[in-house]
Design a protein around this nucleic acid. Structure first.
Length: 313
DNA sequence: GAACCGTGGTT
DNA sequence: TAACCAAGGTT
């Protein structure tokens, strides 16, 4: 199967099977797309949806978010996880207001320069919000390419230069929006549509644990299937421990502050995590990350964005 | 390059 | 049930 055939096959599947998601609507603003990409970093769609809706209702533009303290972003982030993303999204909104006239930039380099925006997010926003042509290499796409083209069950732990080169080479030449016009099943496939379609195939069919190969439009051409779907052979993929880690401690501490109306005394944090050494280390880390602001008298709160007044000597 | 950074659903 | 996994980014 050549790449044109690959694009057409996956796009045809996508036009029939894509989930309806608010940030994919043609009316979705670049900011709406950007917020979704931040939230979707390592967090499943189902958990993002309600938080995204509330976020967009409250902060429909970057300037609206930038006008509020970063702690409000952390609070609204809720239990999506990795709350530093909330802080970075707030910082990105602030940079957009300061440096881009309040509009999400439309080119990859300017996006990449924003806090919390890496190679994936810059390519995704440029593609999905602006119809630009970039390789969007997320975990779904990497898995689809590993199976369909390389014949392995899983991609390597880290994306290689060869992988990125392959993704570039596979990119359709056509620019334009990610969604084909309604009722145009044979519309040409844009780079952005290929990106969202290959991601969606990985998310719905070519899944990590139990791929639904019977429903896959690429099953006949898939190198991994043709090879008999051999089990992963290579270094073990790194696991993620959690219970008892600093991450869990940080999560418990921050949850107390999120759920409180105002500043919280140290004693409330002590209840949230019993082990004092780890608790202190976790709290220090949260403060260092800017997720927590220490006040006088052993009080703590979510960040206000206003540096605490220095006591006069 | 490897470690670190949350949370909850699925297998 | 414990392990795995999720539209990554930063240091």
């Amino acid at each position: 199967m050549d790449s044109a055939e690959l694009h057409a096959t996956v796009a045809a599947w996508y036009r029939e099977n894509a989930r309806v998601l608010p940030w994919r609507e043609p009316t979705a603003s670049p900011w709406a797309v950007m917020v979704s990409e931040f939230m979707l970093q390592q967090t499943p769609v189902a958990r993002v949806l309600p938080v995204w809706e509330a976020w967009m209702a409250r902060w429909p533009t970057p300037a609206a978010l930038a006008a509020e303290p970063p702690g409000e972003a952390v609070r609204a982030w809720g239990r999506l996880g990795y709350p530093r993303r909330a802080l970075r999204l707030h910082a990105a909104a602030t940079a957009i207001r300061a440096d881009h006239g309040g509009r999400v930039p439309d080119d990859h380099a300017a996006l990449l320069a924003l806090p919390g925006v890496g190679a994936y997010t810059a390519a995704a926003v440029a593609s999905f919000a602006f119809g630009r042509r970039h390789a969007v290499l997320d975990t779904n796409v990497r898995r689809v390419l590993a199976r369909a083209l390389s014949g392995s069950q899983y991609p390597l732990n880290a994306a290689t230069a060869a992988e990125r080169a392959l993704a570039e080479q596979l990119l359709p030449h056509l620019e334009g929006p990610a969604n084909a016009p309604a009722g145009a099943p044979d519309a040409p496939v844009t780079a952005a549509e290929w990106a969202v379609a290959s991601m969606e195939l990985g998310a719905l069919v070519c899944t990590a644990r139990s791929p639904r190969c019977a429903d896959c439009p690429l099953a006949d051409a898939c190198a991994w299937t043709r090879a008999g779907r051999p089990a992963h052979d290579g270094p073990p993929r790194r696991g993620q421990s959690y219970a008892g880690t600093d991450r869990q401690a940080r999560g418990r501490l921050l949850a107390v502050l999120r759920d409180a109306d105002g500043p919280v005394p140290q004693a409330r944090l002590d209840e949230a995590w019993g082990e004092p050494v780890q608790r202190a280390r976790a709290l220090d880390g949260l403060v260092a990350d800017g997720l927590v602001e220490p006040l006088d008298d052993g009080l703590y709160q979510l960040p206000t964005g206003v540096p605490a007044a220095n006591p006069t000597p």
